[in-house]
Design a protein around this nucleic acid. Structure first.
Lengths: 158, 158
DNA sequence: CATAAACCGTAGCCATTGCTACATTTATAA
DNA sequence: TTATAAATGTAGCAATGGCTACGGTTTATG
């Protein structure tokens, strides 16, 4: 059985009856399961938003988040409840949403990463509007290695 | 009512009864709805994978995709059916999965974008393993403006 | 050719994230 | 204070993407 590497995938190919057969193995970490991956992104987006809204206005309400993310308050309400259970947020009925210690810690990490990605894109020559949008999407997918490379790039430029 | 801009969000604040109230408007495009956004990402991942597997082995089976993405064949089967309905893939029972014209067009776009992001990360100094993983996550979130900036960067370096 | 192995489809479960409609609580104002 | 408006919660539906279990098709091989 011959082992071949194609774009990071490990492929095992072998011949049977004159025909080439193949077996494609799991793609390591690149495609982690979408559902759990996305739940994490939601958590990161929410703690970051809560921190920003509190910094800006002193408190963060469910409806503030709904407007921020452009979804209904029902969606926010349910996600806040989940993040409460996961001990990232504190919430009581009809009261503002707050960050737990753990949530604040995560929020600071996410904001820091976001700041670096945004600054990097702008330094790269992307206009601010696109840089802002893209950094939101990208920030959940950059490894610490890539963040380091971005930091390096920014330092060299300064 | 005062209009304030915070990190790309349009915020309207106003006073009522001595207390500062606020209204946070929708965040334009930055947070498109997660569900549809993710469905698009899935489509892009799948047409890209189908094209790669066909190029490498002459055909693409449901199980190849299952191993590629490290999910069960059931999950693949359902998604293939959806993408068939969306006219991106062609599939018949117990037969290999194929790309429609539209699917192939999308796949080429995605692969091209992927290639640029990957080359960019490597040029930036990220090791290949991390670059491969990150590019998978990032590629769905870069605007054409950011892609252009990455291309520019690559051209300057060469 | 018959049987085993590999492949694929369907049924049916769960979680997440959207939504509308309606109920409840809190805050503002008459 | 009481009526109304704003904010929040709950019920219940849909789409998407995970899964296991089970059964049907195709293909390989003895």
């Amino acid at each position: 059985m011959a082992t071949v590497y194609v774009k990071g995938i490990i492929l095992n190919s072998y011949k049977i009856g004159g025909q080439v057969k193949k077996k494609v193995s799991a793609r390591s970490v690149a495609f982690s399961h979408t559902r759990s991956r996305h739940a994490n992104e939601t958590a990161e987006d929410y703690v970051e938003a809560v921190m920003e809204l509190i910094e800006e206005f002193g408190e963060c309400r469910v409806l503030d988040l709904a407007r921020y993310f452009n979804v209904s308050h029902v969606t926010v309400s349910r996600i806040v409840k989940r993040l409460h259970d996961e001990k990232l947020l504190r919430s009581r009925p009809y009261k503002p949403v707050e960050l737990t210690q753990e949530g604040a810690k995560l929020a600071r990490r996410v904001k820091e990463r976001h700041k670096i990605v945004l600054a990097f894109l702008i330094e790269l020559g992307v206009d601010e509007a696109n840089a802002e949008i893209d950094s939101e999407g990208i920030e959940h997918h950059v490894s610490s290695k890539t963040i380091d490379a971005m930091k390096n790039f920014l330092n060299k430029k300064t």
